[in-house]
């Protein structure tokens, strides 16, 4: 949008060919990422967050995955079109990635040092010694004590939190412009989570990296992100600045999401309101709004046609029929309370 934008995804469609048919995992996603900002992608399991993120650097498992259509602008280039050779140069050096499970994301039979240096040596013409030195530096940067010794150790000699730090070191070693972090703290316990998030924030400021942060945890969103995209059933349904989403949300799914988040003023766990029902079948996705089957406000039109985007403000867009001038007014709290959960 602005000249600050470094990544722009438009009309992205991604499918998986399976025995049962075509799983339409991502169905027309539009997103953009500005320099140095953090964009959070939230949404329930299976909504297509990981697939969207992995499509950016064409890391979806293929086969069975295919990018059906759409463009991903990164500077001058369209990442869906660049030849493989060029993609190898972009991955790791311009766009880095961290994954959810640090226990399985590192190669168990290679020293951590080697796993950091191999990227450096591939992208820059670093000699062995030079790369090793840089790797030590990176480990120190991500807060691993005694990096000169640690560099020669294997992943199983690291704790979970340290492994995730090592992953961050690998991802940031080449100083990428974008860091894609797919649930980087989900597998860690709470205190370690906070440390890793602080580390990411600190490094982001130092290196001016833009971050795409995928998470289930709205607390993490509040802590880290400037903007949020809410995904549901393979589509982005609402996007806006953090306060737009947290305080002025216009989409019933986002409301449900907010209600299902534990808040400090809540005493008992029962007060958490999970959204009843299950997500749409991506083998045969609904024609209209993907949330219609579970939406307490769903109207006939919702089942038939996909709602258009409504510009709530400069920073805040929502895709919901309730925005239509003919739609009845919706009371955010009333229907949700009526649903019997158990």
């Amino acid at each position: 949008m602005t000249n600050q934008t470094i990544l722009q995804i438009e009309g992205l469609h991604v499918s998986f060919q399976t025995y049962n048919g075509e799983v339409k995992a991502v169905r027309g996603v539009d997103l953009h990422l500005d320099k140095g900002e953090t964009l959070a992608i939230v949404g329930e399991s299976g909504s297509g967050k990981s697939v969207t993120a992995q499509s950016i650097v064409r890391l979806i498992p293929s086969p069975p995955g295919v990018i059906k259509s759409g463009t991903i602008r990164f500077g001058e280039r369209d990442l869906t079109q660049v030849p493989d050779q060029e993609m190898y140069k972009i991955r790791g050096s311009e766009i880095g990635m961290i994954f959810q499970d640090p226990m399985t994301s590192l190669n168990p039979t290679m020293t951590v040092g080697r796993q950091i240096t191999e990227g450096l040596q591939w992208h820059h013409d670093f000699g062995k010694g030079e790369a090793l030195q840089k790797a030590v530096e990176m480990l120190r940067l991500v807060g691993i004590p005694n990096p000169e010794r640690r560099i020669h150790q294997y992943p199983h000699q690291y704790s979970g939190g340290m492994r995730q730090r090592a992953m961050i070191a690998i991802a940031l070693a080449c100083n990428p412009k974008i860091l894609i972090a797919d649930e980087p703290t989900t597998a860690l316990d709470v205190t370690i989570q906070a440390q890793i998030l602080d580390l990411m924030k600190e490094l982001q400021q130092k290196m001016e990296t833009a971050i795409i942060l995928i998470t289930h945890d709205l607390g993490v969103v509040a802590e880290m992100a400037q903007r949020v995209a809410v995904m549901y059933g393979g589509k982005v349904v609402e996007t806006g600045r953090v306060d737009d989403i947290f305080h002025r949300s216009r989409h019933p799914y986002t409301w449900g999401l907010m209600d299902s988040m534990p808040r400090l003023d809540q005493k008992r766990e029962d007060d958490l309101i999970p959204i009843p029902g299950s997500p749409p079948d991506l083998l045969d996705p609904p024609r209209g709004c993907p949330f219609a089957d579970r939406c307490p406000h769903a109207m006939y039109i919702c089942h038939e046609e996909m709602p258009a985007w409504t510009e709530v403000s400069d920073s805040h867009q929502v895709s919901c029929w309730l925005e239509h001038p003919d739609a009845p007014a919706a009371d955010r709290d009333e229907p949700a309370a009526r649903v019997n959960i158990r």
Binding site: Q85, Y88, R91, D101, T104, S105, L106, H123, M167
Partner: peptide, 16 residues
């Protein structure tokens, strides 16, 4: 395995 994805995410070409 996840670490194969990590290796690819570093940009290593398939042969490597």
């Amino acid at each position: 395995q996840d670490y194969i994805r990590t290796a690819r995410a570093k940009g290593l070409p398939p042969l490597k």
